[in-house]
């Protein structure tokens, strides 16, 4: 006990020491658990009496829990007068920046995947267009062929040659060509 504001006597202290050595015990294990939020609420003085009593029973029986409560309170007092290092603030703030970037990257990869699909669509469209052009060209070509074929059937030499050569002239030309 602190000497700054003494309360109790040496006899009280001795009795307390005997109590700690006695056999009868509060078994901390049988006490209900105290969760972080309850302890925080107790430290803030926000718990109703019955809930506060439950937390205090645990604190009285569980030194680890009491240390947690006292450490937390001490840290809160320290924090009020001591700013955090700048590098911690910078690094911690960058966490969300990185997260946003990561999301952007994952979004970018989604865009990339979309881009891939777009390129495939483009390729498919170009291929389709090519096939259409080919088919059209092929069918057009077929029609012309048929047209020419039909024209061939109606080909009349007389249309193109007004005065056909006589047979002797043809033979003469053939002889000249053979030489």
């Amino acid at each position: 006990m602190s000497e700054t504001d003494p309360v109790g006597s040496d006899k009280d202290r001795a009795l307390w020491a005997r109590l700690k050595a006695a056999s009868a015990a509060d078994d901390v294990a049988r006490l209900p658990a105290v969760f972080d939020e309850e302890l925080a609420a107790w430290l803030d003085g926000r718990l109703p009496p019955h809930a506060a009593a439950r937390v205090e029973a645990r604190l009285a029986a569980d030194p680890a829990m009491l240390s947690l409560a006292l450490d937390t309170r001490a840290a809160l007092h320290e924090a009020a007068g001591a700013p955090a290092p700048d590098r911690l603030v910078t690094r911690a703030q960058a966490l969300v920046g990185f997260e946003v970037e990561r999301q952007a990257q994952s979004g970018g990869s989604r865009l990339g995947r979309l881009g891939g699909w777009w390129r495939r669509l483009e390729l498919a469209a170009v291929t389709g267009a090519f096939l259409v052009v080919c088919a059209t060209g092929f069918s057009l070509g077929g029609d012309l062929q048929q047209t020419f074929a039909g024209d061939g059937e109606r080909f009349d030499v007389a249309v193109y040659v007004a005065n056909p050569l006589a047979e002797s002239e043809v033979n003469f030309l053939a002889d000249q060509g053979g030489q």
Binding site: W16, L19, A24, A25, D27, E56, A57, L59
Partner: peptide, 23 residues
Amino acid sequence: VERLNIPAGLLTERQALVLRLLY
């Protein structure tokens, strides 16, 4: 866990905690 060897129900939770804190 260092047990607080006080008979159950003898002290209120607040009393037990005060002794813990002071001693």
